[in-house]
Design a protein around this nucleic acid. Structure first.
Lengths: 198, 198
DNA sequence: CTTTGATCTGAACGAATGTTCAGATAAATC
DNA sequence: GATTTATCTGAACATTCGTTCAGATCAAAG
């Protein structure tokens, strides 16, 4: 069992994943070759197969761990009993979490069709789990008589699409800070589910 | 000038574009070969080059004509002088137009990174033109004192992201009709820009 | 210092890629 | 019926693809 310590494997492994994430996000899964990933890591293509069984697994692992992180991070939040607060928490959490890892978010939306059917089913279920978190908040708000939402499932998907859209334009050195953006979007979300309007 | 009439070229041309659109949407631009497109049309790969100069042009032409159609269709709408009506018109138009051509919408969002920089710039400008249409409506509503929108540009992008999201889940044979969906989304849009909330 | 084995190289594999082009095909014109 | 020419075939081109694997490398263990 030589070279268990001082080994490169615990360094090269993450670097392979990082390189794949970055290159997939830039050019797309199908357009990136194993040799390009290897070159980014500074290694020959064959060496990649010490860290992944094949190219497909590389993609799947990236999407899977992204979704796992997303759900785990949300679960780690303190639970808000009042629906209005829970919705604000979700809104701000979603924007913050997604803006922190634009590349992972990007490939998680773009590369679903390049997953095998089995792998796709796994990711799709995790995505639905996340959508259900928001849907439950909306239903709770309706039950608490603070939201007006006729279609909680549709509304959840609509709001998530809106919030994720931040990633398509937000630049951290732009005119608006992330805090500003959170506020603008929270205003819209709050009003969109509100009971009254003039 | 033989075979100008009865020629196959005016039939094969659109079929090449249709096949490319469908295959690009299913598997992605980089994952689809010219031979696959040719097979779908029922022709050899070489014959495709009677209808496109290269694969890149095939993609660009699809995106370009989609954006041209989008803008032309919007312009063809009767102009609504009242901001509230204009916003409802935009909301319903956007949902309807996009739900009618899911494949073109899909590749218009997914394949931007596979355009050459010059081609990308062209599409990006057309997209901004469209976003500006909504932004102008929002600004008009603020001027008319019927909307409360602090950030018209951000809000326009947020609303478009939300509306385009319909394409990710809507099925015409589902529980909700397209008319139902339009109403649900219009309720959200109207409230999101409204001046009062409880 | 010798042994061990995790890690990596470098070459090789068949298959597939976008594109070109000489020549075959056949419908429209004269 | 002969000619023209738009359209398409089928083969070829240099590259690149994902993946495999025998052998080199070299740090840690004995």
């Amino acid at each position: 069992m030589a070279r268990t310590q001082g080994s490169h494997s615990d360094i090269t492994g993450p670097r392979v994943r990082d390189a794949a994430l970055s290159l997939f996000a830039q050019h797309g899964y199908a357009a990136v070759s194993m040799r390009q990933i290897a070159a980014e890591v500074g290694v020959q293509a064959g060496a990649l197969y010490n860290y992944t069984s094949d190219k497909q697994s590389l993609l799947f692992d990236l999407l899977k761990s992204h979704m796992d992180q997303l759900l785990a991070s949300w679960m780690a939040q303190p639970e808000a009993p009042v629906a209005m607060q829970a919705l604000e928490q979700f809104t701000r959490f979603h924007i913050r979490f997604h803006s922190e890892r634009p590349e992972a978010v990007f490939i998680s939306y773009m590369e679903l069709r390049n997953l095998t059917p089995e792998n796709f089913a796994v990711i799709e279920e995790l995505r639905k789990d996340y959508e259900t978190k928001l849907e439950d908040i909306l239903r709770a708000g309706v039950a608490q008589n603070v939201f007006s939402v006729r279609e909680p499932k549709v509304t959840a998907m609509a709001l998530i699409a809106m919030l994720t859209g931040v990633n398509t334009w937000f630049k951290s050195d732009g005119r608006l800070s992330l805090e500003d953006v959170e506020q603008v979007y929270w205003d819209m979300v709050r009003k969109a589910v509100s009971k009254r309007t003039d």
